[in-house]
Design a protein around this nucleic acid. Sequence first.
DNA 1: AGTGTCACTTGCATAATGCAAGTTGTTTGT
DNA 2: ACAAACAACTTGCATTATGCAAGTGACACT
Lengths: 172, 172
Amino acid sequence: MQVTLVVCVPVRGRSKTKKHRSGCPVSISLEMFGDRWSLLIVRDLMVRGYRTFKEFQQSGEGIATNILADRLRRLEAAGIISAETEEKDRRRVSYRLTEKGIDLAPVLLEMLIWGARHEQTGAPCELIEEMAKNREAILAEVRRRWQECDPTPLLPRFDQGDLDPDAGRRKG
Amino acid sequence: MQVTLVVCVPVRGRSKTKKHRSGCPVSISLEMFGDRWSLLIVRDLMVRGYRTFKEFQQSGEGIATNILADRLRRLEAAGIISAETEEKDRRRVSYRLTEKGIDLAPVLLEMLIWGARHEQTGAPCELIEEMAKNREAILAEVRRRWQECDPTPLLPRFDQGDLDPDAGRRKG
DNA sequence: AGTGTCACTTGCATAATGCAAGTTGTTTGT
DNA sequence: ACAAACAACTTGCATTATGCAAGTGACACT
């Protein structure tokens, strides 16, 4: 039968585990962001400089507002993002990646490279191959922007052929 | 209403597109394997040397057989794996990663590293950090095994504390 | 005071998932 | 030759997640 409901009372400031399918790090990662939306939100925060609910919503993928709200909740619960209502306009909630969140950059980058190499995407191959050659520089730049709260987009939206020839080349 | 069913007849040997949410490579990648199971199958093929339905099923994560069958179908349709009934025992179907599939190794590796760093997993931190230091070597070894059809597992199952101290260290 | 924004909720139809049991084709044991 | 065992799936059905349109409440702007 294999009931999977272990709650794990916080013992000595440690575990708050919820019972994983297995101890494999890949499996545990997938339990946190293994769906079609979570990583797109992370991407928006990471390379497009988005911060608000509305921006994510208008991101071009067509996420429904209830799903978006749900994913933001989960990502926050997972410690991948943090939320804060803005001082200047208290209607707005500003989301930000945590360090745990920005550490997803390599995952995103590899997915980007894989997708661009193996599928027909809106991203130009030359740009991607150049990114693949300069992984470390890209990751450093992503982290720099995060640390300095620099919201300048690193990559355009790749909606179709729409591309900013300057983007992603500044540190390449 | 927005029905999203564009079939795209093969025109001049090109598109067989199915209509993507956007042209972003990350988004397109997530459409192919953005769920809680697909990448686990890829992992099993890549680092555990699994080949058959039954092995995937007994992988320790508890995937249901109908879902497994569905994912195998999708992964094959996506060109990430190939299937072949064995000569010696025609009951068995042997699955294998395609080149497109083995190219997912960097994605998996980064997810493994991220998960092990930020969550409590069954993988020992030292091993993971050593892997993080030798990404290229690991990836080369993964690819070598794939090319030579060497089914020796590269990593153990990380079920809990269960670990083969030799695994993943041979090329480290 | 009135209208507009922003970040969500809610209700409801549809699709995906999980679980147990059943089916098909193949091999193995007697 | 025949029955039992296997491997790889299907099928039926309950539960859960997703997608869509519409609505709500707190705040802001004029």
